[in-house]
Design a binder for these strands. Structure first.
Lengths: 106, 106
DNA sequence: ATTATTAATCAAAAATAATTGATTAATACC
DNA sequence: GGTATTAATCAATTATTTTTGATTAATAAT
């Protein structure tokens, strides 16, 4: 009984991290994260030319990162500004990935 | 020129981590990793019933983890024994994931 | 020797995810 | 008010991954 309950909550953990790793499992999204580490926040219209990606595609990938809780969004007027969720990233990634995907490194 | 070269090597980094995160982006594979943390090594035939997965499917998932460099394999006779690649896992995952996917925790 | 077990691989089908271009709704600008 | 810009969403297509059951090659056990 105890074991069963523990298994269920473990499964929920695996499900949770599956979603987060899935969001990280794309070179374009990793590039987006890397760019976001370099500024506090940036809007879609400025990010789009930076990574050479059409707006609809970029919005799609940003939504995946947002739904996974890896980035945060703030809307001001028609603009949406995105930035890294530092706590979340630090809770998942090794310090050795500092320069690539974390803020205040390098 | 410098910037261009740097961009190319960054792209290679993203590509590398894409593969690793892709391997982690599956709840079954996370479950496999978790089980592997609990013993030094285990063969496919013993792992299969533990996670209730047919052999061919398990081999498929183990190959993905192996190709990503997250686990290691040692063949003895007809048996293949798999175990966690600690260095690799430590280089990617936060210490906060210790109890789930790392050895010698909890 | 013969039979059984182990584990990798294969090919086909099913399920998921990514891309594309268009549309929409909201806000900004003149 | 009218036009332009911003970014999310949609539907259709394309691409990728996963599942399944069967086959194969190697070794083990009798």
């Amino acid at each position: 009984m105890e074991i069963q309950l523990q298994d269920v909550s473990l499964d929920l953990e695996f499900e949770k991290y599956e979603a987060k790793f899935k969001a990280l499992a794309d070179r374009k999204r990793l590039q987006i994260l890397h760019l976001l580490t370099k500024q506090k926040s940036i809007c879609v219209c400025d990010l789009s030319p930076l990574i050479d990606m059409p707006q609809s595609k970029l919005s799609y990938h940003l939504k995946i990162l947002l739904d996974a809780g890896l980035i945060v969004k703030e809307t001001r007027g028609t603009w949406s500004y995105y930035g890294i969720d530092e706590n979340e990233i630090n809770g998942i990634l090794s310090d050795k990935l500092c320069c690539l995907f974390k803020t205040d490194c390098c």
